[in-house]
Amino acid sequence: MPARDYIRERFFPHMWCPGCGHGIVLNALLRAVEALGLDKKNFVMVSGIGCSARISGYVDFHSMHTLHGRALAFATGIKISKPELNVIVPMGDGDAMAIGGNHFIHAARRNIEMTAIVMNNRIYGMTGGQFSPLSGYGTMGTTAPYGNIDHGFNTVDLASSAGATFVARTTTYHARELADFIGQAISHPGFSVLEVLSQCPTQFGRRNKAGDAPEMLESYRTGTARIDSKKKRENPDLIERGIFVQKELPEYCREYERIISKARGE
């Protein structure tokens, strides 16, 4: 592993199941940070609860493992008090979209400079396979033994509507694209959201007959297409990958500084 300087090796092998996509996200994240050439002392990773949240224990950055769904709220406090830090907030689909849904949309609306990575495995893995807001209609879970009747959120549409100034989606199959998008999301001067389709062979794959980890990765290859690609035009049902939003708006911490100066009459 080339980016060994950025991990806490004493905690390896990690606790994720064989073939879990979250390890690929960690792998790409380390490469992205290494490629940016930034000092690891300037990174803070803040996570909530769930399989995804365990990622903060493996990186050798400043890290905080906080409350379920509340990682963005803790991260906002950190960023406001020390705006010079790069704040990364990895979240699971349940963490980000269910219990943390409100924090998610309001962090996006404020445009506070941080990187929210939604590691979407479509299930609550750690607690035993309950369906999440991203499981999707018709999927099976321990709490949906006859099929899920809830429709899923579209993370990209939700984040875009809520005001995030960088919104992208990719998968763990597209490992190079994943590292590239994480790098761009970290460099973006505003609230960035990256949804990563990440396979859970143990809880989601097994219940939904999606196969083992390689088969689930194959489904990301065949089931997704780049925005505006020929493949997407020919198969409109494919899930789109790419950067959907990339724009600059006043950033929250800098605006806050401006208000402080104004109040002081400077």
Partner: peptide
């Protein structure tokens, strides 16, 4: 190396 979820390669 890039797709190894265990960072083992």
């Amino acid at each position: 190396e890039l797709r190894c979820p265990d960072l083992a390669i």
